[in-house]
Amino acid sequence: MMMETKIKEYIKLVKKGDQAAFEEIVLFYQSKVFAICFRMIGNRHEAEDIAQEAFIRAYVNIHSFDNKRKFSTWLYRIATNLTIDRIRKKKPDFYLDAQVQGTEGLDLYAQIPADQALPEEEVESIEIQSYIQQEIMNLPAKYRSVIALRFVDELSLIEISEILEIPVGTVKTRIHRGREALRKRLRHV
């Protein structure tokens, strides 16, 4: 709450032409914006690229931001829109949407035997992290965006619906299905 009001002050300064004040905003939100983009696109380099562009766009369009609204909602909308555009422009993604409804069944990663996954004590390890991300990447893009927003920043369903500009009911359905899919994919980890 304190931070939100501080951010609003920085935004006022940016609107007055104080470019340096924008640095505080970037520092505060960079990790979350990056993590959301990464969860959606699955590649560090691209995620960083998109996240940087999101901040630049936020800066350029700062005058269209209404200070009465929540800044993160506006910023995350820019970031998720950019990521969705990038996903659409990419080459046909043979593994992304291949297994849409059937969260079970065979796909590239389901073929990796469960007991090859690393033991639980190493949850923090890079391998596990990339394995989890690969499982997220097996979900359709529209599920990934909801999952990213829900689990990176613990956003409420209403906030997610505002960011993605979809009805709350749709957000709910996607979170439920996304959770079920992840449960099945990660139960052996």
Binding site: S31, F34, R39, E48, Q52, Y59, V60, E124, R183, R185
Partner: peptide
């Protein structure tokens, strides 16, 4: 468990030059 695995993973950090790169690319 699935949720906590995804969340445990979410202290993803961008590179340390992230902010300076954004600032250098502002119009």
């Amino acid at each position: 468990r699935a949720i906590s695995l995804v969340k445990a993973n979410s202290d993803l950090r961008p590179s340390s030059s992230f902010t300076s790169q954004v600032m250098n690319n502002l119009p």
